[in-house]
Lab assay of single mutants.
Amino acid sequence: MQFKLIINGKTLKGEITIEAVDAAEAEKFFKQYANDNGIDGEWTYDDATKTFTVTE
């Protein structure tokens, strides 16, 4: 399945899409990606669109 991350950071904005087995695997990848890029904010997930959003 495809999952999307929308980044609304103070210094980094954009979107990335990955293939993952389930939402838990996608969330783990996205949170590591955000951590690696210094993004720390509020997370939301929309199951209907398979979209995670992080907002700083």
Results as ranks from 00 to 15, higher is better:
47 D>M: 11
16 I>E: 04
22 D>N: 08
41 G>S: 02
1 M>A: 04
37 N>S: 07
37 N>I: 13
32 Q>S: 07
26 A>P: 01
37 N>C: 02
44 T>S: 07
52 F>G: 00
35 N>G: 14
21 V>I: 14
23 A>F: 13
26 A>T: 01
33 Y>D: 01
20 A>D: 08
5 L>S: 00
7 I>L: 15
7 I>W: 11
15 E>V: 14
15 E>C: 03
5 L>W: 04
38 G>M: 11
6 I>D: 03
2 Q>W: 14
18 I>V: 06
6 I>T: 11
48 A>Y: 05
23 A>H: 15
24 A>V: 08
21 V>F: 08
31 K>P: 00
23 A>W: 15
53 T>Q: 11
45 Y>F: 04
1 M>F: 08
33 Y>W: 07
18 I>N: 07
15 E>A: 10
13 K>L: 08
54 V>A: 11
28 K>D: 03
29 F>Y: 04
28 K>A: 13
39 I>A: 10
32 Q>E: 03
32 Q>G: 05
28 K>Q: 03
28 K>N: 10
42 E>G: 12
8 N>L: 09
45 Y>V: 04
36 D>M: 10
55 T>F: 13
34 A>Q: 04
15 E>N: 13
41 G>Y: 02
33 Y>K: 06
31 K>E: 03
1 M>E: 14
23 A>Q: 13
38 G>N: 06
8 N>S: 13
47 D>P: 10
42 E>M: 15
44 T>Q: 14
19 E>T: 06
53 T>W: 11
18 I>Y: 09
9 G>M: 04
32 Q>I: 11
32 Q>M: 15
11 T>Y: 11
14 G>K: 07
7 I>Y: 10
6 I>Y: 14
25 E>T: 15
48 A>K: 14
22 D>E: 10
27 E>C: 10
40 D>S: 06
5 L>Y: 01
6 I>H: 14
39 I>Y: 15
51 T>A: 10
3 F>C: 01
37 N>K: 13
45 Y>W: 14
12 L>W: 10
3 F>M: 02
29 F>S: 07
18 I>C: 03
34 A>M: 07
24 A>S: 06
30 F>L: 09
5 L>A: 02
51 T>H: 09
55 T>H: 11
54 V>P: 00
16 I>P: 01
16 I>R: 10
40 D>L: 14
47 D>W: 06
32 Q>Y: 11
2 Q>I: 10
35 N>W: 11
3 F>R: 00
52 F>N: 00
46 D>H: 08
3 F>Y: 15
36 D>H: 15
51 T>E: 04
55 T>V: 05
2 Q>E: 11
48 A>E: 11
47 D>I: 15
6 I>C: 06
4 K>M: 03
12 L>V: 15
41 G>M: 02
47 D>K: 09
20 A>H: 05
50 K>M: 02
18 I>W: 10
14 G>E: 09
55 T>C: 08
8 N>I: 06
55 T>Y: 07
29 F>W: 14
33 Y>C: 02
16 I>G: 03
27 E>N: 09
5 L>D: 00
6 I>F: 12
4 K>T: 09
28 K>C: 02
24 A>N: 14
37 N>D: 03
22 D>V: 08
17 T>G: 09
1 M>I: 08
43 W>K: 00
34 A>D: 00
3 F>I: 02
18 I>D: 02
1 M>L: 09
31 K>Y: 10
48 A>Q: 15
36 D>A: 12
2 Q>V: 14
48 A>P: 08
34 A>F: 02
39 I>F: 14
56 E>M: 07
10 K>T: 05
27 E>L: 09
50 K>T: 13
26 A>N: 00
30 F>Q: 00
35 N>H: 11
46 D>W: 10
53 T>I: 04
35 N>A: 14
22 D>K: 03
43 W>P: 01
24 A>T: 08
50 K>G: 08
44 T>C: 03
38 G>A: 09
13 K>F: 06
39 I>M: 15
4 K>A: 07
21 V>E: 05
30 F>H: 01
54 V>D: 00
